[in-house]
Amino acid sequence: MMELLLSTLRLSTPLIFAAMGGFLCERSGVATICLEGVLLTSAWAAATVTYLTHSPYLGAIAALIVGGFTMFIHAFLTVKAKADQIISGVVVNLIAAGMTPLLTKLLFGSPTNTKAIPISERFSSTTLTVVACLLPFTLYALVYRTGLGLRLLAAGDGPEALETSGVSSQKVRLWAMSLAGMVIGLGGVYLSTAHASQFTRDMTAGRGYIALTALIFGKWRPIPTFVSCLFFGLADALQIQLQSNPIFGHTFPVQALQAFPYIVTLLVLVGFIGNAKPPLAIGK
């Protein structure tokens, strides 16, 4: 039981970082289909820089910068160039999926993975999990209790009102999205230098999309989103346990078990998306 709980927390951590980044971005009025791509580039940066400098902290800083920068591309395309938010997000994901193996091949000779980081140079996964569990509450306070948060909410739900109040909604969005990129970057750090010991191609495996689902499931509010991340983490933890523990004498095919979290996601979407109300200015 304890094992299942710890496993749930470990598996939820990257989802929480990604979903909280998504929360900041979407609340400011911009759709974040690009969570997956930001997670991927920051994971790559963390593993690569940690391996090259032997410092997990420099790796983490690199991941925050690269995560912030990847999100900034999305911000630039959508906020400044007024590109369609979904298309821009897809473009970012495609760039991330293509650039990371390319750069890996240039640096390490093989496109599939970076070189393994010795255990002593890996980032503490406990620290990151604790940060992930505190983050939703911190963001709640930031967004719902401060002046900056008020502006962020206004940018997402009534940008014209914000503009006529004398605040540039573009600036608020750029600010919120860069911060979002850094938050997601922590998820990347966790994936490639704490949870694993290297970057492997497409290692995010759809976690960005599941985080997005958790955000919708949590109705764009930080605490419910946090809870839904834990729920998806639990689904993942269960599937791993079921792989090694046969139930009623049956062993399920591994592929079916691996599909389990995604099926749960699908059911959740079918059951709950009807009630979810996104920030009003999203997509505009």
């Binding site: 002046g147 008020l150 502006r151 909410l153 009534g158 109040s165």
Partner: peptide, 20 residues
């Protein structure tokens, strides 16, 4: 020019918050 999802007082202080 109001943000429908915010409360009355939040709308009033928006852009001129006593503190950021």
């Amino acid at each position: 020019m109001l943000v429908p999802t915010l409360t009355v007082w939040e709308n009033i202080i928006l852009g001129k918050e006593p503190s950021l």
